[in-house]
Design a protein around this nucleic acid. Structure first.
Lengths: 340, 340
DNA sequence: TCTGGCACTCCGCGAAGTCGAGTGCCAGTC
DNA sequence: GACTGGCACTCGACTTCGCGGAGTGCCAGA
């Protein structure tokens, strides 16, 4: 049996009420709070069907109904319209983000803003190195046998690493390397650099090859292998809203998952262009997050994407509002990056 | 009435048992588990005195006793000996810390290690800029009107900021500024730099003074005013051990406090030389942490201190073990820094 | 000063009972 | 055929009660 409009309307009402009250919703309360134009008995029949189809369930016999993950999914896909942000929220976003002095600052402000607006846990990925280009590479002599390698990416990210040289190296040689390296790599996509780095070593004068090889290996690590994607996190305290009821009684697994950068990157970092991705409960591959939902999207200057951001909360979350906020914040951050 | 040795022994036994079992401890259980050489009735009398003095209390009439904050304080100050670390723990520390490639890496490894060993929330402060010296300052031209200012401190910290120049500036001028700035500031304690920065501007050729002033103001911000102290945090999931019993029922306030860098810096950052500081329950000035204890200490190469680290957990914590671990980790990190 | 004994308190826990929200089903109506 | 009102039923949430036990305070005696 397919679902007619009224049944969908009932599902929407259930989701909205449950999200608002956090209590199983019964047929009588439903008709009272929504103008469905039918009697509780009719709603009950609809509910029976919805339950059979797997969109809602009863916590126990003779209790109200609660949406299942599938129910939320249907709600998100077909029953909800993305809410427009309130002027107050728009203002909050602008006020929060102006005055950021550098990338770190932008990311930190963003993640706090997002946590505050959605009242969930917020995660922001720093602009991915994999999607950046080299703006400049600097070699700073620290001692005769050590230099600091500093890479500045066009997204504003700065990475630095210490390089131990094989032997004492005059400052002029360092300057030389710096010139050669910049000539070869500046403006290149980071993803394209590894073969270029190899040619750097090959083309080097034999007596300096050893030194160059050292620098090159650290360079490679920095640029690609380590490919260290960074994250900022905020709003963990929001997990405790709604008592211990959300997250099936224990925050433990969720907190554990939040400590694993790898997991967070999987959630936030895998973004396709211009989509907002919603993962509901079981749709998360990570076991620890079976009781959580994640709303994520990409951001970047203009239409390009340099990183992801999103929020994590209980499956019982205000999807339309959250999606709207996540998108809006991503857009603002993109604009901000475009200005630099 | 003063406390004789046996009463102190009773207090120690209560603390140890309560920490181990998390249950109020009664007189009978106490004489069974510890060789006190007296009867339960005697212990009861001692307990009555200890309670009167404020070192223990009863959750309710006719329940066992639980240490108060004052009880833990006495225990820490006079009744406990710092445990030696097990060889396994020593090995764990070494294994964890070798192979760190840069400061970020050291800090991240340290904080995770600390969380894992103590099974509490760990906090590590990055080497404080206020306690560092300038190793090198670099000006990297980004465009004709923008340079990136990169400061490298002797502690390995690297800070960068974008500087908007008042007008197009030739590369030679930038190199010039770089030379002048380094000549003046390299090797200086960051705390001593502000007046020097001012002289930089004063001594500058008038036609370049404007540009130099721009750089100088950002420099000042970076060096001192912003004085951005950074932190790393790990092990929040450990807060959920021991059920919701610790932290008087709600993790909320604790999680909130952990989100405030300012608060954490207050807890971890204010370190006197070579002391381990233990703040128990109410001794924390922050209201949200009334139910928590913080063990913190300073670290740095040799005997100098460049930053703080520590852990936060329930007042009901294994103080001797935690103190030992925190100290040991701080020492290892200090050694590691000394090598660079 | 310590000990054994004794009466007392009060928490925790399970059993029993009540209340009420909510259900499923069915017969009747439009 | 779809909707409605009515009714019996279920079952969790909450309350009360009673009991057992751990633990206490106090006192008299060694």
């Amino acid at each position: 049996m397919s679902l007619d409009d009224r049944k969908l309307e009932v599902l929407r009402a259930i989701v909205e009420d449950y999200v608002a009250t956090q209590e199983p919703v019964g047929s009588k309360a439903l008709v009272e709070r929504h103008q469905l134009g039918v009697s509780p008995a009719t709603v009950r029949n609809d509910m029976a069907v919805l339950e059979e189809e797997g969109y809602i369930r009863q916590p126990h016999t003779s209790a109200g109904r609660v949406p299942t993950d599938a129910g939320y999914r249907l709600f998100v896909d077909r029953l909800s319209r993305v809410k427009a942000l309130s002027p107050a929220e728009r203002r909050a976003i602008e006020r929060f983000l102006v005055g950021a002095v550098d990338l770190d600052d932008v990311v930190h402000r963003t993640v706090r803003l997002l946590a505050q607006l959605t009242r969930q846990v917020a995660v922001v990925q720093y602009p991915s190195l994999a999607r950046s280009s080299v703006r400049h590479l600097e070699l700073v002599p620290i001692s005769t046998t050590r230099v600091m390698l500093v890479m500045i990416a066009d997204t504003g990210r700065v990475e630095q690493r210490l390089v131990e040289l094989p032997g004492p190296t005059p400052g002029d040689d360092v300057l030389d390397m710096r010139r050669v390296i910049n000539a070869k790599l500046t403006g290149q996509k980071l993803a394209d650099t590894p073969p270029l780095v190899q040619t750097l070593v090959d083309e080097c004068a034999p007596e300096k090859r050893n030194t160059m090889a050292c620098v090159a290996s650290v360079l490679l690590e920095t640029l690609v292998e380590r490919s260290e994607e960074r994250l900022a996190l905020a709003g963990t305290a929001n997990l405790t809203r709604g008592g211990v009821l959300d997250f099936q009684g224990s925050l433990r697994p969720v907190l554990e998952a939040l400590e694993e950068e790898v997991i967070l990157l999987k959630l936030i970092g895998e973004v396709e262009p211009s989509t907002t991705r919603v993962r509901i409960g079981d749709e998360n591959e990570i076991d620890n997050l079976r009781a959580a939902s994640v709303v994520s999207t990409g951001y970047g200057p203009g239409t390009t994407i340099v990183g992801g951001l999103g929020v994590l909360g209980p499956t019982r979350m205000d999807y339309p509002g959250t999606i709207a906020t996540v998108r809006a914040v991503a857009r603002y951050v993109g604009d901000l990056l475009a200005q630099n």
